[in-house]
């Protein structure tokens, strides 16, 4: 089942096309790593797919009315905004906004979703702490939990693991892979190609606004693609411990 279909999606900033003619289908069960160098158009592609930016072409999610869209797709922006010193529990509960009854009270299902999200991100002990007083990495995990609490079939996350410690980076990627295994889909932009190669079922490589390669990690992380798009050479091997990827040097 397709959860997101993009058809010839193009986004202009002024005269420049920052995302050019991208067509993509993401189905249930996929954990997609969106990779590419800085300025490749990863963030713009995801925002346009969600309908947060005006674009030409079509996106199945952007075409939905606002309320239905919020139940179909959760969005974790790169900017980690927490405007007020609210408690972690309150912040995570904001993910339930699209599901709330008219009165705005949290129901049993809402509380259960918040508890599950807190548990998944290892945040149960932080429940009543003030979110703005946590460290940057802890705030990032709280915001991921907020997106999980939204309980949408599709999760789009913009650099979700940047700034996390290694254990929580791996933990977050494992959570994303588990969400996919449950029949949801995750699209996460990533700069850590090693984690992308290990945990994603599929990689989508962007360069200069275009979709360059799309497929299984081994088919995307080829020496030619790495040299051409990232300008690096890397060690990439299938080992008894799973795939290992390590960028080695800058080429060209």
């Amino acid at each position: 089942m397709s959860l997101l279909t993009l058809d010839h999606l193009t986004v202009h900033r002024g005269d420049r096309a920052v995302v050019r003619d991208v067509s993509l289908r993401v189905g249930a069960g996929e954990c997609v790593g969106l990779i590419g160098p800085n300025g490749a158009g990863k963030t713009t592609l995801m925002r346009a797919a969600l309908g947060l930016l005006p674009a030409t072409g079509t996106s199945s999610v952007a075409a939905l009315p606002a309320a239905a869209r919020a139940r179909q797709a959760a969005w974790l922006p790169q900017m980690r905004d927490i405007a007020w010193p609210v408690s972690v529990e309150t912040l995570v509960a904001l993910g339930r906004t699209p599901h709330l009854a008219p009165g705005g009270r949290l129901r049993e299902a809402d509380r259960a979703a918040v508890d599950a999200a807190l548990a998944r991100l290892d945040l149960a002990a932080f429940r009543s702490r003030i979110a703005t007083q946590l460290s940057g990495g802890e705030q990032a995990r709280v915001l991921i939990a907020r997106a999980l609490a939204q309980d949408a079939p599709l999760l789009l996350a913009d650099e979700p693991i940047a700034g996390l410690d290694p254990a929580h980076q791996i933990m977050t990627m494992t959570v994303f892979a588990a969400l996919a295994a449950e029949g949801r889909a995750v699209i996460a932009s990533l700069h850590d190609l090693g984690l992308a190669a290990r945990h994603c079922t599929r990689l989508v490589l962007m360069g200069a606004g275009r979709l360059v390669a799309d497929g299984a990690p081994a088919d995307v992380l080829t020496p030619e693609n790495l040299a051409q798009v990232f300008g690096v050479r890397a060690y990439y091997a299938q080992t008894p411990d799973g795939p290992v990827f390590q960028p080695l040097e800058v080429v060209k």
Binding site: R47, L50, L52, A66, A67, R69, A70, R71, A73, A74, W75, L76, P77, M79, D81, I82, A83, W84, V86, L91, L94, G95, T97, P98, L100, G104, L143, R146, Q150
Partner: peptide, 18 residues
């Protein structure tokens, strides 16, 4: 409800259906 959601920034609030 909209102001609560804006705690997460304009982008996240819009994606929450506001």
């Amino acid at each position: 409800r909209g102001l609560d959601a804006l705690t997460l920034g304009e982008d996240a609030a819009a994606a929450l259906g506001i």
